[in-house]
């Protein structure tokens, strides 16, 4: 088999894995947009905030330690304990639920009925607020995230493909884990949305707020629930991306990777986020592999957005988005 074909297969598989990671970020956007019509600019910062909180809890860091020390002249930084990863994840989830309650109570409850652009701007404010709070709460240094996820080349795939092609494929163990978790997460979300009372209520709210309210669905509860689920998705994305780069401010920029996925897959479709992520992941990697060397490389961001733009032109609602027909 020609070398370029073998290399192309490796790039294709890695593109799929990268796409899963993009889809993880995009999922959080979709959930909130689907249920409330809000494009949540703060989704990337939520991933950062949740990952910061997770590391802080695991390491027994005193929240707002720098602030407390500056005000009271104390020297407290750590509680002196280490929390196991599973327990820390559960506690972080609790923090994200609390955040969802606060967001709903102090921000969006007061903005019911406002134009979508107002709600969008509120999420911009929320992003900056969370960024600052995360910084003061946990500090801005880069933190190593150790939740026991495997990293590095998968030797089984390496050896097997070497046996087949005389060239071992590189597949990162972390990407395999991320794929498995994404499958579980999406399955759980679909089951939740289709087969639970709360899930059906969420879908009802997504379809028509007024109609849902008229049959007794609590808009307040549903929105808190949706923001909590989006917080959980943000935590998962934060763990996966944080394991690659350490937990740091730049985690919030992963949202940049989700935008073309959303444009392509549609803002209202969970399968769209997955398929969109895979198309973007594979497309940008294959384009970089085939065309990158001819034009000096670093084509991935460009390609992702151009592909999304092409989809927008021909299918504005995205691959799986709902076509909006407004009757006059």
């Amino acid at each position: 088999m020609p070398d370029q074909l073998i290399f192309g297969m490796e790039v294709f598989l890695n593109g799929l894995m990268a796409g899963v990671l993009y889809a993880l970020v995009a999922l959080g956007f979709v959930l909130i947009y689907k249920a409330s019509g809000i494009f949540n600019y703060a989704q990337g910062v939520m991933a950062l905030f949740s990952a910061l909180t997770l590391v802080g809890i695991m390491e027994g860091q005193v929240p707002f330690g720098h602030l407390i020390n500056a005000i009271f002249g104390t020297e407290i930084h750590h509680f002196g304990w280490h929390v196991p990863a599973v327990l820390a994840i559960l506690l972080t989830m609790g923090v994200m639920v609390l955040l969802a309650v606060c967001v709903q109570k102090f921000v969006f409850r007061h903005l019911v009925g406002q134009e979508p652009i107002i709600l969008f701007m509120a999420t911009i404010g929320l992003a900056y607020f969370l960024e600052g709070v995360g910084d003061i709460m946990w500090g801005s240094e880069i933190k190593k995230l150790e939740v026991g996820l495997p990293q590095g080349i998968n030797t089984l795939i390496d050896e097997t493909t070497y046996g087949w092609f005389g060239y071992g494929f590189f597949i990162d163990n972390l990407d395999l884990v991320a794929t498995a978790i994404a499958i579980l997460l999406v399955s759980a979300l679909v089951i939740f949305a289709q087969y639970t009372k709360q899930g059906r209520a969420m879908r009802a709210v997504a379809d028509d707020h007024q109609a849902a309210l008229s049959v007794g669905v609590s808009l307040n509860f549903i929105w808190i629930m949706v923001w909590s689920v989006a917080g959980f998705v943000a935590l998962v994305a934060g763990i996966m991306w944080g394991a690659k780069s350490g937990v740091q401010f730049s985690l919030s920029l992963i949202a940049l990777k989700a935008l073309p996925v959303l444009m392509l897959g549609g803002f209202t479709s969970i399968p769209g986020a997955i398929i969109g992520g895979l198309i973007i992941g594979v497309g940008e990697k294959m384009f970089e592999f085939a065309v990158g060397p001819l034009v000096g490389g670093a084509t991935e961001n460009w390609f992702a957005y151009v592909l999304a733009l092409i989809f927008l032109v021909f299918r504005p609602q995205g691959l799986f988005g709902e076509k909006i027909i407004e009757r006059v």
């Binding site: 290399f7 490796e10 790039v11 890695n14 894995m17 990268a18 990671l21 590189f170 990162d172 991306w241 690659k244 780069s245 730049s250 920029l253 992963i254 940049l256 990777k257 940008e284 990697k285 970089e288 592999f289 990158g292 000096g296 490389g297 670093a298 991935e300 961001n301």
Partner: peptide
């Protein structure tokens, strides 16, 4: 030379190359 776009959180293409 192999360039990496800002911010550089995803570098799989570069490292496969």
């Amino acid at each position: 030379a192999i360039p990496i776009d800002y911010p550089g959180q995803e570098q799989k293409s570069q490292w496969l190359q």
